[in-house]
Computed example of a mutant assay.
Amino acid sequence: MTGQAANGAWPSASPPAAERLLHWQLSGVAELPAMRAQVRRAMGPSIDPDALDQLILALDEMASNALRHGGGGRVEASVRSTDTGYLIEVSDAAAARPPMPAVDRDPSEGGLGLYLIARMALRHGWYASARAKHVWALLPRS
């Protein structure tokens, strides 16, 4: 797949500089519908509809992965703006565990969201801070 390291992990890289547009602190997947609705309300009038759908899909996938597999604790998610696109960044408590797309799994069992995001993204990656893993994807404006 495009942009992936040979072992299936996302590349270790820092995201581009970007201006914060939206930010959430999440504690459970039940909060994801409200997050998606807020993105539609806040960004819908000013963004290409297809780009908006991709942005919401990637944000939802990354946030749900962090909530389900991120080691518990607080998950933070944000949408930022760059000159070329929209930067999605999600952090969780699993600082030592890189994002790993599913390998050798039947597509009907799920786990293919990271592949999809990597294909949609201009760039993607992850990095660790002292207490968190940060996973990011830069999606095009249109």
Rank of each mutant, 00 (worst) to 15 (best):
A96P: 09
L114M: 08
D104H: 12
G113F: 01
T84V: 06
T82I: 05
T84R: 03
M100G: 15
E109L: 13
G85W: 01
G113L: 06
P101M: 05
S81Y: 03
V103A: 12
P101G: 07
A102Q: 09
E109V: 14
E109W: 13
T84C: 04
Y86N: 13
D104P: 12
A94H: 02
D106M: 14
L112Y: 11
E89M: 02
E89V: 02
A94P: 00
L114F: 07
P98F: 03
D104W: 13
P99M: 11
R80N: 00
E89T: 01
L87P: 05
G111I: 09
V90H: 03
G113A: 07
E109I: 15
P101D: 06
D104M: 15
R97Y: 04
A93D: 09
T84S: 08
G111S: 11
V90P: 00
P98W: 07
Y86C: 15
I88R: 04
R97C: 09
L114D: 02
A94N: 00
R80F: 00
R97S: 10
V90C: 03
S81D: 03
L114T: 05
G110R: 10
D104V: 11
D83F: 07
P101C: 05
S81N: 14
Y86V: 13
S91T: 00
G85A: 11
P98V: 08
P98Y: 02
T82A: 05
A94S: 03
G85R: 09
L87C: 11
D106G: 14
G113D: 06
A93E: 07
P98L: 08
G113P: 07
R105D: 11
D92A: 03
P101F: 04
D106F: 14
A94K: 02
G85I: 02
D92W: 05
D106R: 12
V90E: 02
A95I: 04
P107D: 08
G113K: 05
A93W: 05
Y86K: 15
G111W: 04
A96R: 07
E109D: 10
R80V: 01
P107Q: 10
S81L: 12
S108T: 14
S91G: 08
V103H: 14
P107N: 11
G111P: 11
S108W: 15
Y115I: 11
